[in-house]
Amino acid sequence: MRDFYGVRLPTRLMLGTAQYPSPAILAEAFRSSGACVATVSLRRESGGGQAFWEIVKQLGVRLLPNTAGCHTAREAVTTAQMAREVFETNWIKLEVIGHADTLQPDPFGLLEAAETLAGMGFEVFPYTTEDQVLAARLVEAGCRVLMPWGAPIGSGMGLNNRHGLRTLRAAFPDVAMVIDAGLGLPSHAAQALEMGFDAVLLNSAVSQARDPVTMARAFACAVEAGALAAGAGPMPVRDMAVPSTPVLGKAWL
C-alpha cells in the first residue's frame, strides 16, 4: 500500500464528520467503519466548536482538515493556515471550488493554492478531477497524494468516469490516490479499491443512510474486499465467451 506523506494507514477508509443524526451515532459509525482518518473543517465559532473538538479527539483517528467552501486560492491558503494551527497537523484536504452547482474544483485556483501550501510545508491532499494533466501539475507542485472525485460531492452516483479514473491510476503508479466525493454505495467503494485506488473518503453515503452505523460497517467490508481483490490480480476482461469447463474429453453423444 502506498503511504500518505510517510504515514501508513491501517485501513482504506476515511470518513467525514458532517450531517450525522447525533454525536453518538457519529462516534459509533467511526467505530463500525474502522475509518482511520476523519475530515473536519473550520467555521465561525458560534458555541459548538469546543464541544465538537472534544468529540473528534475522542475518535482517536488522524485528522484531515478541509478548506471546504473556499472559492479562491487566497481563501483556501488562509483557511489552511488556520486549520494547521487548530488541528495541529500539516495535512490539508485542499478544496478550491469552481462551480456552485457541481462543486467541481477550480483547477487553476487549486494548482495555485497547492503550490503555495507545499512551499509553506503543508502536506496537501488536493480534491481534484480525473484530469491527468492537472494531476501532473499537482504532483509537480509537490502533492504526494491526489483525491480525484468519483462524482459530484454528495451526489451518491459512484464512479462516473471509470475510464478516466483507470487512466489516472495507471499514469501515476507512485502517487497515493483517494477517491473523494460522490460515492453512495459500498459497491462503489469496492470498485475504487479493485481499480487500485488506495482508499476512499465518504461522508454523506454513511451519514445520510437510514442506519449510518450499519452502512459504515458495509463500507468497511467493501473496502477490505476491494483491496484484497486488487492485490489478488483480477482476471482480464474479454469480449468473447471462453469456456471454463475443459473441452477436451467431452463425450461424443
Partner: peptide, 25 residues
C-alpha cells in the same frame, strides 16, 4: 497565529474572523 495575537494592533473597521473546529466532509 496564536503567538502573534498580542502584538497584532487593531484599527477601527478591522474585520476579525474567529474560527473553531466544525464538522466537515
Amino acid at each position: 497565529p496564536a503567538a502573534a495575537r498580542c502584538d497584532r494592533q487593531l484599527a477601527p473597521g478591522d474585520r476579525i474572523e474567529v474560527l473553531a473546529p466544525m464538522q466537515g466532509g
